[in-house]
Amino acid sequence: MVPNIHELVVEAPDVAAAIKPGQFVILRPSETGERVPLSTSDFDREAGTITCFFQVVGESTAKLALLEPGDTIPTFAGPLGLESEIENFGTVVLVGGCFGIGSIYPIARALKEAGNEAHVILEARSKYLHYWVDRHEAIADSVTLITRDGTLGTKGHVSRIPDILNKLKIKPDRVIANGCTFQMKRVSDITKPLGILTIVSMNPIMIDGTGMCGVCRLTVDGETKFACVDGPDFNGHLIDWEEFLQRRKTYYEEEIEPLRRSGTGTTVHVCRNC
């Protein structure tokens, strides 16, 4: 799609028939691959297809990027997790970055259909990393683009959100953020003093995605939750972010090993935010 972010369209009629905005799938690119959770960016119930965006960060996503159109993969399970809350909240601001530019789209669409005023803010490092802007424009009340280097739209990062809200002259009833962890944490940090309820879609390490292993646990409001069955959406102001970031690094050392070995390491560029 854009450098390092790939679009994946999978034919899986049963999953496509059942999936709702905010849910995710788990797939394995090969028989020896890990189980990779991905958020859904779109679904076509008639064609029976699901669209996901993924970023190449390690061995399994690198393998996924090497797939050719028409290939089949051994595992594609879903929908998993709870769907996003969709109601008429009033005014909602949706913030997407990285693969979240895609995965926030069906949520925006559903909220719009439910009668909300939906404002979308999309963030990327540079102009060439934006995608699906036209899609968002087709459904949202406004779309604001942010680039780190200022090559498109507002220069900066999500810290510019208060300015953007001022410019749009809106006071949102709810903010929803999808994307990499740092971006979601920052959005939560910004909205907390403003007192705006903020929902984030958490992406911890997972294995089964059905509540069986507990690796995806995080602390929300002092309680342990399993992201795969209790989430992935949580109130960003109640999450223990520090613990979450630590847990995500569990396998850092081990993951570097297969990258070196497979030679895919050269093409990898881990998101600078994460």
Partner: peptide, 13 residues
């Protein structure tokens, strides 16, 4: 929830 704490299910799986 420290790193290094597992459920047996995770460990064995």
């Amino acid at each position: 929830n420290l790193n290094g704490v597992y459920s047996a299910n995770e460990y064995l799986t």
